[in-house]
Design a protein around this nucleic acid. Sequence first.
DNA 1: ATGTTCTTGTGATTCACTTCACAAGCGGGA
DNA 2: TCCCGCTTGTGAAGTGAATCACAAGAACAT
Lengths: 215, 215
Amino acid sequence: MARKTSDSTVRRLSRYLRRLRKLDAQDRKVVSSRELAETTGTTAAQVRKDLSHFGSFGKRGQGYSVGDLRVHLEEILGLDHRWTVAVLGIGKIGSALLGYGYFTERGFDIAAAFDSDPSKIGSELGGVRIQPLNALEEAFREHRISIAIIATPVEAAQDAASRAVSAGARAILNFAPIKLSLPEGVALREMDVTLELEGLCYLVTEASTPADGPE
Amino acid sequence: MARKTSDSTVRRLSRYLRRLRKLDAQDRKVVSSRELAETTGTTAAQVRKDLSHFGSFGKRGQGYSVGDLRVHLEEILGLDHRWTVAVLGIGKIGSALLGYGYFTERGFDIAAAFDSDPSKIGSELGGVRIQPLNALEEAFREHRISIAIIATPVEAAQDAASRAVSAGARAILNFAPIKLSLPEGVALREMDVTLELEGLCYLVTEASTPADGPE
DNA sequence: ATGTTCTTGTGATTCACTTCACAAGCGGGA
DNA sequence: TCCCGCTTGTGAAGTGAATCACAAGAACAT
């Protein structure tokens, strides 16, 4: 089943799941596609299309069982078990990630942290000891780490990523403002603050240029 | 000119600009759509389509002038002047942002920082003094802040955002894992680490389920 | 001049995602 | 049992973005 699920669909599924977990915590039993849509910023039809891609989880006339759908989505997204991640580069962003509370709560454990700066190595942050890069291979093997978060300065990002991949990483979350080149089959997502800020600048600028027309 | 530029186009323009600045620093004079495409992860046709949306900047047979195109893009994106931003919520992420070096370098100045925790107020981080939320309106006015970065805990995010908007913010960059509701006309971009991580989990999981067929 | 080579700019086409619209089905009440 | 209100699941239609493909044009050599 389920061929070629687009990135945007996956992102929406995550949002649905987030909502479902909240509803579940509130002991809600059922939810309609309409409500799910409104609270996650999409349309009812979209919700149903997204879900129907993976099976038929609802009851006509009733809606979806919060608990069941939650379990289904967790399974679809691969979130029915915890994930172990590593952070490479313990600068401002890396440090923030090590102490970021939502991770554990959402099923992600940071098992290892790496930096090349000798003065940082050995210290502990958020309960994780910072190790030198040459400990990377062993740590990845030992903890079965499959996701690497790249938070190094831009010059070091490609090397760090390549190294993580050869050590076994199958997915990279990249905070460095650079286009990483990775072997086929390694998943990649980017988090680029300045890129998003620049996008906002465009929107603000565009909205205030009296340049053209109504709307 | 230029009606309805899509988000994805704007994002690509940012990437082109980033590349052009680098080429400019290396004293490169011209660049082809092909090279620009390869170094930013898209196709030559896409680059030309994106640019032609705003005008005709290249020379047939030659390519684009690095300097000229850079200036054009900076103007299009509204990056021909500096922007002043505020950070709301000085927890892990907020602190990281205050010290994040790339901002200044990229034309963004953090002019103000706010938190509700009395123990944080008054202290200085990255050269910015942390203020109480009730100083927000005045600071926004004084510094003409148009972009607010929301880095509060999820419960406080909607309030913080609404307040920033009524104080004059015209764009919000939201780090809190919640769908903000904002008045029409206010630009919004989201940075959600767990959402991206979950997306990666899906990709990794999908890639390793022998479930169905060959590619 | 003329031809060759190169790269842009852009209509036409293809592709993928979203929205629409409605039959199918469930539960509850009379 | 039969009807009615409600919501799902899903083909069909619509929309918008990415890709293709090629004419237009620029430089340069001969």
